[in-house]
Every structure is written in C-alpha cells, then in structure tokens.
Amino acid sequence: MSDTTAPGRALRTGPGRLLVAVYSVFALAATARGTYQLATRFDEAPAAYLLSVFAGAVYLVAAVGLARAGRASRRVALVSCAVEAVGVVTVGAVGLLAPSLFPDDTVWSGFGAGYGYIPLVLPFLGLWWILTVHRKDRARAV
C-alpha cells in the first residue's frame, strides 16, 4: 500500500480489493434472484422476494462505497455494511422464531446458510476493514 494521502483511497486496495469483488458478486446474485422471483412468482412470497432485492441493493451500495474514494463513500460503505449486519442477523433470527413470515428463502435466510454463511461474515469483515483504514488515516493525519 502506497503512501496516498487522499482519504478513502486505501479502501479498495489490499483486502478491500477482495471485499469489493465479493460484494459485487453478491449484489448481482441477490438482485438477480429477487428480481426474477418478483417477476415470475410475486404472489407466493412477496416479502421474501422484496427482501432479496433490498439485500442486493445494499450489497451494490456497499460495493460502490468501498470501491470509490472519498469521505462520503467511506460513510456510505460504513452505513451499508451496518445495515447488512443488522439485516442478516435479524432475518436469520426471524426465520428461526417466526418462519411463516418469509416462506421462501432469501440471501439472508438462516444467517446466509444457503450461501456458505458468507453473508453473515461479510458485513463484519467490511466494517472491520473500513474502521482499520479509517484508524490508519487518522494516525497518519496527526
């Protein structure tokens, strides 16, 4: 990692490079899945399908936030990773306590079990990385 001074520059380098790739794939997977299900079987489980589309949108925003430089992008990435963390934990818990709410599976169902639990780990890795870079930047600024 070079000694760049522009804030946010480092977010997409190093481990962030991998995070952006993973986020992009999940954005595509969740959005495509949700859109397809909404278009073909809206009546069956609209809440689950809308949730998939929403999750896809959050992944997309996070990917863009991580990939772009700047203070605002960093905040966007931070917020979207936080939303995602809350989302996957909430949906996982709801699935356990009240399975009838989401009759069909989403990316976040069962804490992301259908996707190798990556959806559960990903937001926390994202948050960790954003905070790590942020701390480094602040240490450098002082």
């Binding site: 990692m1 380098t13 190093g14 481990p15 962030g16 490079r17 991998l18 952006v20 790739a21 993973v22 794939v25």
Partner: peptide, 25 residues
C-alpha cells in the same frame, strides 16, 4: 463475464490480494 472482470480487478492490485480475488472468482 466473471473471469475477465475478476482478472482485471485482481491484476490492478499489486499485492497478495490480487490472487485472492482470482481465487474467489
């Protein structure tokens, strides 16, 4: 589209995280 997209994205990174992107893909 996945292999070329990830190859470019990984090649731009001049550290160990470049191959990591390819491994994921």
């Amino acid at each position: 589209l996945l292999p070329p997209a990830c190859a470019v994205w990984g090649f731009m990174e001049r550290s160990r995280w470049g191959p990591a992107v390819i491994a994921f893909a």
